[in-house]
Design a protein around this nucleic acid. Structure first.
Lengths: 104, 104
DNA sequence: ACACTTGGTAAGCTAACGCTTACGGTAAGT
DNA sequence: ACTTACCGTAAGCGTTAGCTTACCAAGTGT
């Protein structure tokens, strides 16, 4: 199951965000993702596994290489979770604007 | 400065999410937040400090107690960051729908 | 068949994180 | 003034997370 908890935890890591942002430019094999990053290729593999289990990316075998791309599922889960608090945040903001009026 | 990195890292922790969700029901003092949670009050204080520095909550002194509430700033930052990938995700999803058609 | 490329996995280490206990500091009540 | 309630901070500890090196499996080309 893909809940918001895993998705948020996955995107909390800087290296994982870097990988995710790189995939936003289009699907890529693991080696190409690792190239230019500060960590080794096995580290990237581990990160991809975490992102995959969080529903943020999906892979697709193509010969000896695996093409990774962004999976909309994870993003949708996070967005749904965020929307849960959006009205509360807006109410808080509205109160923020009206508060100075009460001050006088 | 409040960037998406800090906000995501802050919401990655389960206890911090629990605190944040509890604040969605309305502003509360620290003691009331800690009541019912599995951790001690100082732990809650530390978590609140992290959430605050991420722009997710804000506090307001009221006598000897400090009232915490959700700050829309952090949520907005995360949402803006997510929207950066939203079109990519939609394109990926669209391709997902049309791919079976090409299969035959 | 053999070599090479590609990538996932295991083992182990280090650093960071979250928690607790203990303490200090401020405001309110008596 | 003295006590009590409320909360932040420091110090210390155990666990986890991310990284590296080493190894293994599968596919491709010659």
């Amino acid at each position: 199951m893909i809940d918001a908890a895993n998705a948020l935890a996955a995107l909390a890591d800087p290296t994982r965000r870097q990988i995710f942002e790189r995939l936003a430019a289009g699907p890529r094999p693991v080696g190409e993702i690792a190239r230019g990053l500060a960590v080794t290729r096995p580290a990237v593999s581990q990160h991809l596994a975490v992102l995959k289990s969080a529903g943020l990316v999906r892979d697709q075998a193509q010969g000896t290489r695996r093409i990774y791309e962004i999976d909309p599922k994870g993003l949708g889960t996070i967005r749904a979770w965020l929307d849960q608090f959006w009205d509360v945040a807006l109410a808080s903001f509205k109160e923020d604007v009206e508060r100075p009026k009460e001050k006088r």
